[in-house]
Design a protein around this nucleic acid. Sequence first.
DNA 1: TTGTACGCGTTATCAG
DNA 2: CTGATAACGCGTACAA
Lengths: 329, 329
Amino acid sequence: MTTLKELATILNVSVSTVSKALNDSPEIGEDTKRRVKQLAAELDYQPNRLAQQLKSNATKTIGVIIPTIINPFFAEVLHGIENYADSHQYDIITTISNESFDKEQRAIKMLARGSVDGFIVAAARETQMEQKIAHLQSILNNQIPLVMFDRVVDQINCAKVVVDDYESVYNATQNLIEKGRQHFVLFSNIADLSVGKLRSQGFQDALKDAGLTFDVVDLKAIDNLNGKILDYLKTHSNTDAIVSIDHLTGIVALNMAESLGKSIPTDIDIVGFGYTETPLLVNNKIAIIQQKGEAIGFKTTELLLEKIKHKEVSGGDTIVIPNGFNPVY
Amino acid sequence: MTTLKELATILNVSVSTVSKALNDSPEIGEDTKRRVKQLAAELDYQPNRLAQQLKSNATKTIGVIIPTIINPFFAEVLHGIENYADSHQYDIITTISNESFDKEQRAIKMLARGSVDGFIVAAARETQMEQKIAHLQSILNNQIPLVMFDRVVDQINCAKVVVDDYESVYNATQNLIEKGRQHFVLFSNIADLSVGKLRSQGFQDALKDAGLTFDVVDLKAIDNLNGKILDYLKTHSNTDAIVSIDHLTGIVALNMAESLGKSIPTDIDIVGFGYTETPLLVNNKIAIIQQKGEAIGFKTTELLLEKIKHKEVSGGDTIVIPNGFNPVY
DNA sequence: TTGTACGCGTTATCAG
DNA sequence: CTGATAACGCGTACAA
């Protein structure tokens, strides 16, 4: 990479003259400016960003820590974050915690050493389950702005962007109740997450409020998802309403029910979570609660850049981005 | 952030003493080391990475430029890249070009100004279609190592990681021919991409080699994917073999065929592209050519880190990661 | 109009 | 054993 010093040596002027000339300082004569700029163009001089960042004490970079990127919800959020950041001349350094507290912690430690101007974090499963917050608190203690989304941690005093998990499942369940459904089951793959608990609670409250009974099945992990669901449906053949609270289980339930000869949505009404592409995948046979991933990413980043701009660190509102609902008629 | 200077002032020693003490230099006395380390621990001193990077002329950061993150294939690749990079103490700065040449170019310009030690790039659709290569060449001209994957550009002399697009579609098609299928159609959503062309060619060559005729339908964009496919199937009711070369069309074709009362795979054999979750989504009714996204990410990053290590810039092999095949019986 | 000097935070070399 | 000095590359107040 060409440096100011190199240009200066070649032109037999001082480094600062070159710097000023390139920044169009009025102190420098037109003739000198021309010479400097021409050589800079020839050698394709570009100022070193590390030096600028060190000097200005601003990196124009955001640290993003998310639990996974395979889940399309997080992919869409990342897309929103990157988009908003880019349009404000910010770069993003992304770390995927893989649901590991340890990796999350290491990433924060690393990036907090001057590499980023602010953090966007969705906590790992492990972090949420074991209520570990010291590493998140350390971000704020280091005077670095932080915004969390979706996987938030109540004890941390920062701006947050969440969805209306409880309400959207409550409403979707109520919708099924109004349609006259009687035998409800909830399939959950994420029972241990904050969002999973909220969604499950919404389901249970809606049915309790209506005086109906229900099953809650915790599928625990992704392996043999279809087998477990098939078994349930076989042994509970009167099931006529299924609510799934993750992005996969609803689709699998649809497939399993159909394989048992059920007609969907006539015999069984299914509600699942999903993202932009999901309705296409299921041919509109199941209702989809759509998380607005991109909008969440936008809002989260907007809040963070505001904080950076005003040099605020902690505090801030909790913004709710309502889920969309793609019903089946 | 605490700095060396602050520690030095408090302890009444010089900055260099503090630095050496923290780095366990044998030049420093045990007693001094203890005092320095204790204060550093108390104030949670962490060396500023920007300064280290500037000094060492190495950022330990990789610039990743991909066309999209919504497509699960790229999400899986990114996952692989991040994983491999992290286990080698590298960060990644991710830019999503959104298939835009302009954004790709801007990102390269920005990151090439000292922010990264190397680039991983999958070219934008626009870049591939209009054969723009100057910005990619400029990476190499700046003496920065580059590895491309999937969306590669032939004219650029760098290491590449690709899949066996042609062969895998050729083989899958041949498989259908051997099963006695007669009326073939290929649905394509990505006709203008290098990978799309290869896949389409594999389909066409397999059928030509077998002396069969076929249709190739370019669906152009994602909107009304189902409507277009439904129309085709209605007007070509003898279709008994469908090959899809992207990750969505096969699933949509399955849904549309079933909605027309077809039994899959009995009446129509369908082959689609997909990723880890796809077989679960389609309940194994359609065969899936599985791109090994994570493996591609691993390999790409491995190649790049090798280059960085040995200070090689251009050149390098083209590695082929064979697609998996998930057949239907 | 141009050049000198300093600082950002770190590390390495060289003196003392 | 410790400290001063220079350097990475840039920008800017101040001096000439």
